[in-house]
Design a protein around this nucleic acid. Structure first.
Length: 107
DNA sequence: GACATGACGGCAC
DNA sequence: AGTGCCGCCATGT
């Protein structure tokens, strides 16, 4: 639409590839899009995305923190969905990236 | 057309 | 180790 096939489409596609119980980060997704430092766009794309179609709750920041929780129906929706999928959180409320970080296959 | 903002990341201090 | 600033691309005003 506005841009060439929207960079959003790519973001959505990648996010949809994230299996339940796993999470990814804006930076990694941006990197997959060949724009290493455009993580902001990724978040933006998700904001405009249909949460019904894209598991945006599986995307967290590099810190493992649920930065986009405030963009969901309720602030705890994101965490709740992740917990339901089997994602574990640290005492500080961040996701155990060491354990749930999903790595896209560069192939 | 220019300025400001945004679900971030990395580097400098 | 914590805090701050700059950079990046796209969108909205």
């Amino acid at each position: 639409m506005t841009t060439c096939r929207t960079f959003y489409e790519k973001v959505y596609e990648l996010v949809r590839l994230i299996p339940a119980g796993k999470v990814s980060t804006y930076g990694i997704i941006a990197e997959q899009l060949s724009v290493r430092s455009a993580a902001r766009m990724v978040g933006w794309a998700l904001n405009k995305a249909d949460l019904e179609k894209v598991p945006a709750h599986r995307v967290v920041n590099r810190n493992g923190d649920l930065t986009g929780k405030g963009h969901f129906f309720t602030p705890d929706t994101m965490r709740r969905m992740l917990e339901t999928e089997g994602v574990t959180f640290r005492p500080d409320g961040s996701v155990n990236l060491e354990r749930h970080l999903f790595r896209f296959t560069p192939s």
